[in-house]
Design a protein around this nucleic acid. Sequence first.
DNA 1: AAAGTTTTTTTCGAATTTCGTAAAAATAGG
DNA 2: CCTATTTTTACGAAATTCGAAAAAAACTTT
Lengths: 156, 156
Amino acid sequence: MKKLDHVDKQILQILQEDGRIPYTEIAHQLGVSEGTIRSRITRLLQDGVFQFVIHPDPAKLGLKVQAIIGLTTKLGLQKSVAEELSKFSAVRFVGAFSGKHDLIIQACFHSNDELITFVNERLSQIEGIAAADVSLELKQYKDSFSFVPDDEVTLQ
Amino acid sequence: MKKLDHVDKQILQILQEDGRIPYTEIAHQLGVSEGTIRSRITRLLQDGVFQFVIHPDPAKLGLKVQAIIGLTTKLGLQKSVAEELSKFSAVRFVGAFSGKHDLIIQACFHSNDELITFVNERLSQIEGIAAADVSLELKQYKDSFSFVPDDEVTLQ
DNA sequence: AAAGTTTTTTTCGAATTTCGTAAAAATAGG
DNA sequence: CCTATTTTTACGAAATTCGAAAAAAACTTT
């Protein structure tokens, strides 16, 4: 149960703009030594607070069709359905929810054709899916899992 | 209109695991020179194929409550609603969709209380939202931009 | 298929960054 | 106020990145 202080949050903020900015540069921006940045980041990584990753642009990879699909699953099969769905590389998000749909997923496709094939061929072969409610993405306004909350934060 | 070849895709694959792995290490793994990795990555960045970012764990930041909210907007106000919603740092995804909801957003909160406050106070103050359908995330199975398509890819 | 052109890869020394670690400073507890 | 613990700084060594020129590969044109 450790708190993220202002420096930690500033580090996260800077890294979400450019995950490969040198520690020396962050140190310079924040007015501390490189060693401090290094030990802070090492600790944040160890605590699982964040990971260094890349954010590909699906459209640039030819995945022009994105969809959010709400699924109704048969009782008792939700978990196995979720795990099956997670295996697809086209599927980038899978979550269990309360509300209209038991599972909600987000996936990317090259074409409408590929999407409809996914729904008709792939989903239908997964045991436990009762219904699928497809929403086709028309325009994306924001997509970032880089968000640092504004207020004080306590580690879990 | 340039193709991503096998090397490019391998680079993306490696960087998804660790966005800060040294170019020399990637070069070693793929059996090419550091210069090649460097020029490939520089080009991919310039083409906007991907960005270096970090992936924070919302739960570790105290954001234990995540929700997907489907919104119905008043005709003509969808865009401005989407832009307003994008301003919230708690909101990590905003998209316009065909289907049951005009807009679908994904957001993180410290507590159920904060979520309900967001819905009742923040959303209600945005001009143009007719209805909000909240789905509370019970469990997350997958959340990753790790989707390097398996087949050939052509840049847009 | 040879010659010329363009693009990509390799090479390599210089500049920069990262790393390991010990000393100094700051913080916390009694 | 003193001691123990944690955090920050400092700094030389190792590793990585960078710039740029040469070499190699891939494409064109004839």
